[in-house]
Design a binder for these strands. Sequence first.
DNA 1: ATCTTTTGTTAGTATAAACTAACTTTTATT
DNA 2: AATAAAAGTTAGTTTATACTAACAAAAGAT
Lengths: 125, 125
Amino acid sequence: MKNTESAENYLETILILSQKLPVVRSIDVATELGFKKSSVSVAMKHLRENGHIVVSSAGYITLTEAGREIADMIYERHNFLSSWLISLGVDEKIALEDACRIEHVISKESFAAIKRNVGGFQTNS
Amino acid sequence: MKNTESAENYLETILILSQKLPVVRSIDVATELGFKKSSVSVAMKHLRENGHIVVSSAGYITLTEAGREIADMIYERHNFLSSWLISLGVDEKIALEDACRIEHVISKESFAAIKRNVGGFQTNS
DNA sequence: ATCTTTTGTTAGTATAAACTAACTTTTATT
DNA sequence: AATAAAAGTTAGTTTATACTAACAAAAGAT
């Protein structure tokens, strides 16, 4: 998990689940992402070690300040990019998939520039 | 090289080098990408096996029809995305880096939609 | 209380894609 | 011709990230 891509995705998923569920457990993340619980268990260990999440003795996962910041950033990109692509006429499914990939590789600068310059479309948030 | 990302990058590099050099060899690709020649050697073997390139007995690399198609597509994305980001005020270095990453993960549909909708900027080609 | 299911962990495996090290082969220089 | 340099190959290593299999512990159902 040196590459941030996978970590970012886990953090974003934890954020999204925390809005839908009363508590977020490892198994919930696995279900959401379609991964095996063993994979998620290892990933959560790394996120814990890197100070991105805290896990209670009951197994409830919470984002730390640092983890939350990353999750928020990625989630904002996700929402913006998918809404924007949809507003351009891209099929919703494809727009969501693309947003999921672009959100991890775009720079702060480019994202800000796009937001600034193509901002005038219907946001669904 | 099941993931297309690396293969696409090699093919694009071969295309670019073939416009600059009389012939393209493995070592030229390695130099351009900053990879070791052993890595490129293995990658070229895979591209050969997948019918994306042909290598002459002298070691000269040529794109096949299939390889050329991929290279052209990626290169077009690269040029469009970088020009577009630069036109939005993104620093050139960052725009190029972002284009290099986004070009491999964006769908045909989204790329077409962006091109269609934000087409009215100064292209430097 | 016992058995089953759910959840989490650990150990070891697989794959992609880079790497180093060592070797071969060809080309150039003396 | 002999040595040196450049280019290519091969074998084995590393890292990230998923996987399976086997186990442990907790929660629920009978």
